[in-house]
């Protein structure tokens, strides 16, 4: 966390920018979003996708502002809401704008309502996606007589370009080095990659390395690895507890992608479901493994 080497005092703006790792995160996530809209064609023919992004950002910021008003009154916390909002824009899709409002509201609401020992339990963006899926699925139950959610995760929207691995990885690492959570990312992706490679190359007997590689360079997986699982507030405080926790998430998400266990939960989004399920364990791990509680301001 104390990795800042006070460079020969640059401009005041740069100094301000470097004070908080969230500034980097906001810039990078915005770059991904703009890249997606303009180069990957996310908006497609539908301009409303862009207005939906603005809606998510607006709802998140308002919800956070309300939360801050009744609690700390420290409005620097709006940065976190912006990161959550950008994360939702990048990962969560929905047919109806109301579902997105729901996702944004529950993401931020969860931060203030579900807390344990001064930390919120669930990763906000993760919570928003899961809640949007669950609640819209229940609402639609009467129409379809089965669980049909209105929100979904679109793993195919990024494609699987190798360049993605480098860009997302490098940008993520810069942020994570500053907040000291690179260990979580590496433990997760290391375990997940090993399992995928073992399955494809050893168990299934593939001869082509591009098969596991194609899975591992998926943009959604990398975004999860470097920008979601690493949220410093919702990861365990102690280093080894954190690593064990990340390995557990990797193993369970991989397990969900195996046919024998496939529970029709859209296995492509498996890490997102797993993170949600394992979030309460963080509190447990913090109880037995002491570590310094994270703060954005050092």
């Amino acid at each position: 966390m104390s990795s800042t080497t006070q460079a020969k005092s640059a401009s005041p703006f740069l100094q301000f920018f470097k004070q908080d790792a969230r500034h980097f995160q906001i810039v990078y996530l915005s770059i991904f979003l703009i890249y997606g809209i303009f180069w990957l064609g996310w908006a497609g023919q539908h301009f409303e996708s862009v207005t939906q992004y603005l809606l998510i950002i607006g709802v998140c910021l308002i919800a956070q502002a309300i939360g801050i008003h009744f609690t700390t009154k420290d409005f620097r916390g709006l940065k976190s809401a912006l990161i959550t909002a950008l994360g939702l824009c990048l990962l969560c899709k929905a047919n109806s704008s109301w579902t997105l409002v729901l996702a944004a509201a529950t993401a931020i609401g969860g931060k203030y309502l579900i807390r344990y020992k001064g930390k919120h339990v669930f990763n906000p963006a993760n919570m928003g996606i899961i809640m949007a899926i669950i609640i819209s699925g229940l609402v639609n139950f009467s129409q379809y007589d089965r669980f049909v959610p209105d929100a979904w995760v679109s793993p195919g929207q990024w494609g699987s370009d190798v360049i993605m691995l480098f860009v997302l990885g490098a940008m993520g690492s810069i942020v994570l080095l500053r907040v000291g959570r690179l260990d979580t990312s590496l433990a997760f992706i290391g375990t997940f990659a090993s399992l995928v490679i073992l399955r494809d190359m050893v168990y299934l007997g593939e001869t082509d390395w591009r098969i596991p590689f194609h899975t591992l360079t998926n943009g959604s997986l990398l975004l999860f690895t470097f920008f979601m699982i690493t949220d410093p507030v919702t990861t365990p405080n102690a280093k080894w507890a954190r690593i064990a926790w990340a390995v557990a998430i990797a193993v369970i998400s991989f397990g969900l992608t195996i046919d024998a266990f496939s529970l029709d939960v859209r296995v492509h989004a498996a890490p997102i479901y797993t993170l949600f399920a394992l979030a309460p364990i963080t509190a447990l791990l913090d109880r037995y493994f002491k570590g310094k509680k994270f703060s954005w301001y050092e």
């Binding site: 990957l40 379809y144 679109s154 699987s160 899975t215 492509h268």
Partner: peptide, 19 residues
């Protein structure tokens, strides 16, 4: 499907230029 679009999960999906 009875819900909405079907999309690929492991390749990128792009709409063909139109209108």
């Amino acid at each position: 499907s009875d819900q909405g679009r079907i999309e690929p999960t492991n390749y990128r999906n792009v709409e063909i230029p139109t209108n």
